[in-house]
């Protein structure tokens, strides 16, 4: 009984497969032409990628990117620390190191004038 059901199912599947194959074989010319053009485009893409891989080997790109990253980090650390130090103007360093409010230094001219006015009086 089970065998006959399996046999029926197998026969049914065979027929379905045949019909599906026939449907795939009977595609119209326009559809076939479009499928072919898509395949050609995909092959062009494959060729292009192959050429790029040939020109720049993967190990080189990986190594190159790593080297460039390391150099960028090294240069930014080196120049960053050197330029941030106000070594040319020691008085600025004094201001930056002081605990006073920066507003005081913005209005320094006013306070200087006030002190000199007091002295004159």
């Amino acid at each position: 009984m089970n065998n006959s059901i399996d046999g029926q199912e197998k026969a049914f599947l065979e027929k379905v497969k045949r019909e599906l194959d026939a449907a795939a074989d009977d595609l119209d010319t326009l559809t076939l032409a479009r499928l072919r053009s898509f395949r050609m485009r995909a092959m062009d893409e494959a060729e292009r990628r192959k050429r790029i891989r040939f020109i720049i080997p993967r190990w080189l790109t990986a190594g190159g990117i790593a080297t460039v990253c390391a150099m960028v980090v090294a240069v930014s650390i080196w120049f960053g620390t050197k330029q941030n130090l106000p070594t040319n103007h020691p008085e600025d360093l004094e201001i930056l190191a002081a605990q006073e409010q920066l507003d005081l230094y913005k209005d320094l001219d006013f306070y200087t004038w006030l002190a000199s006015a007091d002295n004159d009086r």
């Binding site: 599906l20 595609l27 559809t31 499928l35 072919r36 898509f38 395949r39 995909a42």
Partner: peptide, 11 residues
């Protein structure tokens, strides 16, 4: 490979 599968893929 693509030529072999394209019709069935379309269907």
């Amino acid at each position: 490979f693509l030529a072999a599968v394209e019709r069935r893929a379309f269907k």
